[in-house]
Design a protein around this nucleic acid. Structure first.
Lengths: 192, 192, 192, 192
DNA sequence: TATGAATGAGCTTTCATTCAT
DNA sequence: CATGAATGAAAGCTCATTCAT
């Protein structure tokens, strides 16, 4: 039940945003009493935070790995498949059409402004990614020249931009395709 | 009065977002009756759209110029100074501290999802910018290699990223500094 | 102008009722400033009363005549043509389709509850009509038996009923036809 | 609680009409939170319809009976006692003074214009009443001559007229007395 | 005769939340 | 684990009205 609430809440957050999502919306989505939500979560903000943590930390699941054991290319694939996995999980049919996944980053930016925990996690992730790129440079996968941090930022910015300027997504595969293509295009310009 | 309403509304939109901004907030900000807002605007959405058009189209003011008559470097400066100008205009003391300007793009993404007019304007602007870069390539300002459109996208993504990952801004000069530095860093990698 | 305001106000009263008609509705109907209404009328209630008096007293215009100089049958025709005349006057094309004339009596009942002047006028009219019937009995137009007052009431009730149970009227001629038929049917049962 | 809301709502509808009755009025009448009304009813119109159905259908309770098993005279008594019963139920002391029962028909006419369900129910009732009169004619209770439908209409019109032209009622018994007298007067003119 | 600016009070409705069961 | 009843506060919006021009 708790998982269902988190899932439906995050879907609604993607669709309607922080202030546009009401407890009543969530009640209708889970098809149970509004009071039940308060049984699991102290209040609305606790629920929203929990939902955001649940689904945003998925993206950074790679942090648990070792930065040395992964190439830059692998990391790109990892990132793309992460957003794909989240879309799947949130889609109604369990197959491919995600609900408002194009708002993923908008929600994310709001989270890092609201919740210090999410901000911290994001910074950790970014440090990890910089490490991956540094290793890639040393290993000769990526050209020397630009600082690892700059390259990391560009990857992040391109990932975000690809999503942010896609106004409406009906097919998850399609969005993942766009993201992958854009990331690989950039990768090819810095590959050794 | 109408201009004041638009100004205060946009400031509140930056601070609290679309669904977080209430007519009562606007009333308090303008220091006049809530009914007056409805005297000038049909309803809340009409006001929000008007406010967004007013301030987002400022960013694209360069469209009126000729794409041939401007170098890429000039356009970068133009872009940075545009965001600076908007910050000034929205700051309370008329000097430098902008109100939640770090949410500028979040608001913008929501606008291009909500309002087709804004989306169209953005696409026009992007076409214009691509033209600028194409000219820059032909004129030898920028290295041949990457397509103009790709370069344009990267500039856009970097501009957005610089703002989006800046969690809180107290000093407009500071934010403009960050943006300029990031854009120029990228510019130096593609300069002929 | 004043006449136009009264006309449009009464049309709106028929369509939307006392509490459903706003000054804004009237403004839109007359196509001029809302303030203009206050130039002619002290406040909303003064306007509504004036409009009701204007159009309800038309129905009783016969009072100015002499009760002796008119037969019962003539009075019936007079009554039917009065409602027809009002419909014409209120129709947009000046021809035949009246706006919500089926609500005429609902509005009238509300008026005699609200405004003592209208109530008084109604009673005067009813006395006049009773006189007409008394004369008709004496002249041998109508059978002796029922008291004149009772017959008068029945005419009134039938007139009202014919309108009240007609839910929607698109053609004034049609409504007048129904009223005339019902009144004449009753007349034939009391004719000498 | 739901019943109380319906009761107080209908009382207010009688007193102030459709557009004159606000949710705040209802809140004050039931002495509970305004939100509670929305807990039981989707919106204002749903509440108004429910209240009207509850109290108008009482009037037609006789439909469930068999038209053959009732004389015209019994039906008259039934009708009079129905309006008396409704008045009782709506009176504050449970005894005799009804709240604005003189507006009963005004409200009813508005209902048959607004709600098709109420209109349909009314037509069913009228058909039933016509049947009662037809039987009364065949049984010799009522004179042959006028069609049953016409007689039915006259009864209805007289019932309505007796209420509509009574401007203010303080005592229910009194109103019922007026209605009964008028109906019986007409009955005596058509009795065999 | 005509208008736009401005207002306080009220409207219907939704909000997040609590409590007894 | 789950619910229906109940609430105060606030949402967006419309109301009748006034005033300076």
């Amino acid at each position: 039940m708790k998982e269902k609430i988190l899932r439906e809440t995050f879907k609604l957050l993607l669709k309607k945003g922080f202030d546009g999502t009401s407890i009543t919306d969530i009640q209708n989505a889970i098809g149970m009493s509004r009071t039940l939500v308060y049984h699991y979560f102290k209040n609305k903000d606790a629920l929203l935070l929990a939902a955001c943590k649940t689904y945003f930390f998925l993206r950074y699941a790679s942090i648990s790995q070792d930065a040395c054991s992964i190439t830059c290319l692998q990391h790109i694939e990892h990132t793309v498949s992460a957003i794909g996995r989240i879309s799947m999980e949130l889609s109604d049919d369990g197959k491919s059409s995600p609900p408002s996944i194009e708002n993923y980053n908008i929600l994310f930016y709001q989270c890092i402004r609201r919740y210090p925990e999410v901000r911290k996690y994001m910074l950790d992730y970014f440090r990890f990614f910089t490490q991956v790129i540094e290793n890639a440079i040393e290993r000769g996968e990526i050209k020397r020249g630009l600082p690892a941090e700059t390259i990391g930022k560009y990857f992040l910015y391109i990932f975000d931009g690809a999503i942010n300027y896609t106004v409406q997504v009906s097919d998850c595969e399609h969005l993942c395709g766009i993201i992958r293509r854009e990331l690989l295009t950039f990768y090819s310009t810095i590959k050794a």
